[in-house]
Nucleic acid binder design. Structure first.
Lengths: 332, 332
DNA sequence: TTGAAAGCGGTACCAG
DNA sequence: CTGGTACCGCTTTCAA
């Protein structure tokens, strides 16, 4: 089923069918009616591959995420999608599961699709891949990783400042023995998140911290908490790299008969919706995911076509959100 | 950047470049090396649109979901994706947010992409859209909706049986005044889910039930619970259409100082991971999402190409999962 | 207002 | 083993 069949049935040329499909206003309305009729009768659906091949331009944004299952990423994605849709762009998404090999695959897939713009909301980034992207003419936005380059913009959150707020806060509550739960990708010493925690702790000599890692999931949080609780003196406050791991940690504490926050305080990060629905509601740090998504999307769509557009500046100082999972350190 | 430029640089024809790209084994290794070198130097990435246009076949599956944010849908998607990937298929996904207009858009998008197979894991389906799909030669699987047709298979879960189990269980615990929380798409009297609940309740004359609806989200569950609790005599058991809405309901009950399960029992549905991590852990019904995803994927990939493949039979009798959110009816 | 035809970037068949 | 070339389905001048 293609243009030609439609054209034949409507007694017009393929050019004309193409015109009504793209509602060029030049078509006489009687002709248009005939074509529309043929299209419906034939249940014709234009081949999008042919279209983008012939047209040259894309009107599709690519979004690559580390873990769509984590609402943090999903919320950003959702914002990008709705923002793109209202502007008449499509969005195609891909998940990396924090695997750098999958990242390469996903990114190349997007390049192959000749997306109009590419958002990489991922934790890790191979410099060679960045070169590869930079060589294309596709506008790219990275979140929280890498540095600006040709056609590559960056948008970041001041994770460090957020972490400092958390640590100062629990310190103020009398906590001295801390635990930090991260996912594997966030726990290497090279990692920005890890460094932030360590540096923030190092500012205060009385503080000590032990770390543990799991997968970026509810269960990963539970497992990491288990490791933490079985691997040495019990921390009085457990800081988590994000909310879902914190919810996992809450579960483990509950299973062990430890009360939150009376026995152990817990903090999350991101302020995803779940952080308010779990029990106890999580003290966390708000990362404005909508703002991030909007900035990414606006930039990519503006850039798509235009040569130079200012890089979006979103280096936010995230705010602490106090809820019920933190309290005064026990026996303090 | 295209085949021709690569070909020129490597002093071969485009046909040969195409061959090394598709690793046809016929290419002399010295030639191949030259081509590979050119590809890398030029940072060449094949245009996937051109490829699928020329090739004719697709190796991409389309997945359309009502609400990716609900882990129920996401888990199915994830299974399909991993299943497809290991078979060398790509997956492209689209969300409808329960909006039938968006469903039409999504489905047409998939048709336009000439996907090799299409999974529609959605709650509602316009018969006209089904006709439209049936007219294409794309193999389609619907979940829980519609009936088999040309090129259209169906896969369903015995929701009714699951609901009956829940109701019999809470009845056995002495509950007589029930509340049911659904999302809007699941609450019309035409809806299968709604009917299941009503019929299951009707079997037992002593039972009465009030219903409320919200969006399919944590917050929707909370709001629906609020409606239920403010709109009449308090139910002693609140049955929810799925787990995330149940978690939302738990929150509302907590806010009102009602203890679960001492004052009110709550049940979920689906048995998503969160149901085990919330507090109290939810009594729910297990829907084998992996099995569903696998069946969908296997069918579509088998069908893609072959003319007739048996329709996947997954009419499961889902199992009740007892946890901590249900108990004996108060003052019973 | 409409049609003819030249691509868009690949694939695959047919020769050589 | 390699090259030439006819498509794949659509868009887009250029003429009529």
């Amino acid at each position: 089923m293609n243009l030609e069949e439609v054209a034949r049935r409507a007694n017009v040329s393929t050019a004309t069918v193409s015109r009504v499909l793209n509602n060029a206003s030049v078509v006489r309305s009687s002709t248009r009616a005939r074509v529309v009729k043929a299209i419906e009768e034939l249940r014709y659906h234009p081949n999008l591959h042919a279209r983008s091949l012939a047209g040259g331009k894309s009107r599709t944004l690519g979004v690559v995420l580390s873990n769509m299952e984590n609402p943090f990423f999903f919320d950003i994605y959702k914002t990008i999608e709705s923002c793109a849709h209202t502007a008449g762009f499509e969005v195609v998404v891909s998940n990396t599961d924090y695997r750098s090999e999958q990242l390469a695959t996903s990114l190349r897939l997007m390049i192959g699709r000749r997306v109009a713009g590419l958002a990489a909301i991922v934790s890790e980034m191979d410099p060679l891949l960045i070169d590869e992207l930079s060589a294309t003419e596709i506008p790219v936005v990275f979140y929280d990783v890498g540095t600006p380059r040709h056609n590559i913009a960056n948008i970041r959150v001041n994770y460090r400042q957020g972490m400092e707020k958390v640590i100062d806060y629990v310190y103020g509550l009398g906590h001295r023995r801390l635990g930090f739960i991260g996912h594997h990708a966030a726990l290497g010493p090279i990692n920005e998140r890890m460094k932030s925690v360590m540096d923030a702790v190092a500012r205060i000599p009385e503080l000590e911290v032990r770390t543990a890692a799991g997968t970026d999931s509810l269960d990963g949080g539970r497992m990491a908490a288990r490791t933490l609780l079985e691997g040495g003196p019990r921390p009085t406050a457990i800081l988590c790299v994000n909310d879902i791991m914190a919810v996992g940690a809450l579960r483990e504490l509950r299973d062990r008969g430890l009360r939150v926050p009376q026995d152990v305080s817990v903090t999350g990060f991101d302020n995803v919706s779940l952080s308010e629905f779990c029990y106890p509601a999580l003290t966390t740090v708000d990362i404005p995911r909508e703002q991030i998504g909007r900035a990414v999307c606006d930039y990519l769509m503006a850039k798509s076509g235009k040569p130079e557009v200012p890089s979006p500046e979103v280096l936010i100082d995230p705010a602490l959100v106090l809820r019920d999972s933190t309290g005064i350190a026990p026996s303090a």
